[in-house]
Nucleic acid binder design. Structure first.
Lengths: 241, 241
DNA sequence: CGTCTGTTTGAGCGCGTTCAATAATCGTGG
DNA sequence: CCACGATTATTGAACGCGCTCAAACAGACG
């Protein structure tokens, strides 16, 4: 069973084997690691269940482990002493956690929903890397695309208007959504605000402005339907109104 | 000569062998690559001089090369269609350029001063990586610390005030400065503004407010002396006034 | 000396914030 | 099932930080 779990953690996204997104991710790592060697990976990993709301990585602590999300959602964030918070990313199924750390974790992580992760010790990870050079390559790839995303977020935080930020956010959520037109948000308005560098009031006002402009439909607080994708894309790219 | 240049590019920072910062960087990569193999690296690299103001990486172009800065300074940035710009980082001596790209470059890069870089083709880099697994490990380390920096910048752009941003900027520049108390800035006020998500006017006003508060001394537009480091640190961490 | 570019300074404005009140949503127990 | 309290979201009114627009100033270079 442990072997199976790890295969899922590294190769497949446990919960959703039908999921296009996750199986696409899994492809790249499954293809580089020989199936016969997979049981070896299992020896170095451990499956963990984390309840919603639990903080499982704390900024500043020595970075001993490395995680891969296999089910559920988490938020990663940084804090200022007075409580101001910046969410640097949301981790969805298949995502790696712990790349942004050297000796200590450079961020905190908290489960948004009940969460399943596969945990690897850094020591075990090092052993794995020497055994499977392809793993290191895979991690570098992941770090690269993480960096690309980080730059896009800096552009957003530094230069985009509130409307543009929310439009970008909706499109980003759409990319990881199972159904393309309806988003199920697992985060609160406060989380969205802290992710986009805004206040909850502005998030709320802007979303309702979108609704009035017939760009979206808000069926429920957590369920948003994208009506005018073309216009949302224009907005997100800074060419909207 | 080519061999020597590459040794410098990967191992040492050409111009400044006395420089504490650069030799510290070089240590980590020199130690993992056998001296006898260094001439092999040379076959895959090429030294390039870039005049000040020249744009040598353009966002969206196919990412064929990988760079290491050996002398001078560069700025990396992203643009919105209407010209709004976010500088995502400044590249100083010893820094890697090109990690944040998958198939295409995700950013543009322009020389701030006359610049020297060592260029590696991605193809050559792949060959090198299989030959020197330690190189891949080194790149992953570099990507990790880049990610850590990116998160700090998101916190800055999303949640810090103008004063806090400028204080953080000054400290960041101090870290790469040869003399610890006097900064020589190679970028214009416009660049600083685009780096911190502010306008040139706010940058100018805030710096002069710092001068009035006796936190800094502005000898020349490009030369800033840090007077009250304690207070600047407090400000940067969000605990100042 | 004038020209060009980059910086500083001033005055007024506006986007997003802050503060405050209301409304919706969820969980819980009777 | 509804009543109740706690939490989260929405809406309104007023403020203020940083922006915009505009003018004056400084430095570099021919």
């Amino acid at each position: 069973m442990r072997t199976n779990d790890t295969v899922r953690a590294i190769g497949h996204c446990g919960q959703c084997e039908q999921c296009e997104h996750c199986s696409a991710r899994s492809q790249s790592i499954c293809s580089v690691i020989d199936q016969r060697d997979l049981h070896q990976l299992a020896l170095h990993s451990q499956k963990i269940e984390i309840p919603s709301g639990r903080c499982f990585i704390e900024e500043g602590e020595t970075a001993r482990d490395f995680f891969i999300v296999t089910d559920g959602h988490a938020k990663l964030f940084n804090l200022l002493p007075d409580g101001r918070r910046q969410i640097t990313g949301f981790a969805d199924c298949g995502q790696f956690l712990g790349l942004a750390s050297i000796e200590n974790y450079a961020f905190s992580a908290e489960a948004l929903t009940s969460l399943r992760v596969c945990r690897f010790s850094h020591i075990g990870m090092s052993l794995l890397k020497t055994q499977f050079p392809a793993l290191e390559r895979r991690l570098l790839e992941e770090a690269s695309s993480e960096l690309v995303r980080a730059q896009a977020r800096m552009l957003l935080l530094g230069r985009k208007t509130a409307r543009e930020r929310l439009a970008s956010f909706l499109l980003e959520r759409q990319e990881v959504a199972p159904r393309s037109d309806v988003l199920i948000l697992s985060m609160t308005r406060t989380d969205i605000a802290d992710y986009l560098g805004l206040t909850i009031e502005t998030v709320s006002r802007t979303l309702n402005a979108f609704r009035r402009d017939k760009l979206i439909e808000i069926d429920h607080i957590t369920s948003i339907k994208l009506l005018n994708l073309t216009e949302i894309r224009l907005l997100a790219d800074g060419e909207g109104f």
